[in-house]
Design a protein around this nucleic acid. Sequence first.
DNA 1: GGATTGGGTCGGTCATGGCTTACGGTAAGC
DNA 2: GCTTACCGTAAGCCATGACCGACCCAATCC
Lengths: 110, 110
Amino acid sequence: MTDPIPQPDAAFAALADPTRRALIDRLRAGPLPVGRLAADLPISRPAVSQHLRVLSDAGLLEVEPQGTRRLYRLAPDRLRELRAWLDGLWGDAMDSFAARAREIAQESPK
Amino acid sequence: MTDPIPQPDAAFAALADPTRRALIDRLRAGPLPVGRLAADLPISRPAVSQHLRVLSDAGLLEVEPQGTRRLYRLAPDRLRELRAWLDGLWGDAMDSFAARAREIAQESPK
DNA sequence: GGATTGGGTCGGTCATGGCTTACGGTAAGC
DNA sequence: GCTTACCGTAAGCCATGACCGACCCAATCC
C-alpha cells in the first residue's frame, strides 16, 4: 500500500517541525519547486526533499511534476480537519473556563 | 529564567505526541488530577507527569494545586493563537487553490 | 508523631527522526 | 547521443525525547 489513508496524527507530527512549518509558510504565496525552497533554508536539498515528502504523506501538500521540476502547493483538505479539531477543542476550553469563573464567583460572592 | 515566554513552536511540538493529545482530549470534559489521567493510559504516572509538564510549558494547560492533588485544566490562550495561525494558512491555501482552478480553466476553455 | 496518599524529579535505556554525503533516474539543451 | 539541471532515495551518524524504576517531598489521616 503505497498511498494509505493519511491520519490526522500525521498532520500534527508534520507540523511539529519548525523547518516544515517554514516550508508551509514559504508556500502560502504560491507553488514553488524544490530547488527554490532549498535555497532559502540552511539545510541541504535532500533534507528539504524529505520534509516535503513528510508533508505530502500527511496530506498537507500536493505535487505537480512540471518538466524536470516538481511544484509543491498547499492542500486545503487536511487543514480543514485540523481547523475543525481545534475549533472543537477551543469550544470545550471556553466552557471549562466559564465554569471555573462561576466557581470563583461562588467562592467569594462579595 | 524559570518562566520564559512560551513560543507557539512549543505548542506545535507538544501537540505532536499522540499521548499528549489524548491527555488534552481527556481534559476537554473538565479538570482532572494526575492520578486519574494516568489510570486511563498504558504508561506510567511519571511519564504522564512529564507530558503534563510539556503541555504546561507550552501554555496549553494550567495547574491548580488542591490539597495533595494537582488539577490540570485547558488553557484557552495558546489555543487561540493556534486557531489564528491555522485560519490564516487556511485562507492562503484557499486562494492558491482558487488560482490553480482558474489556470486549469484557462488551459482547457472548452 | 507515624503511616498513607498524590506527584514531581533523577538517572539511564532505547527508539525515533533529522541531517549529511553519495548515488541513480529523468527531462531539457546543445 | 552527451551533457547538464532538477530531484528522489539509500545508508549512516548523531541528537532528541519517551519511557521506566527509584527516590524524595508535601499534605492528609489515624
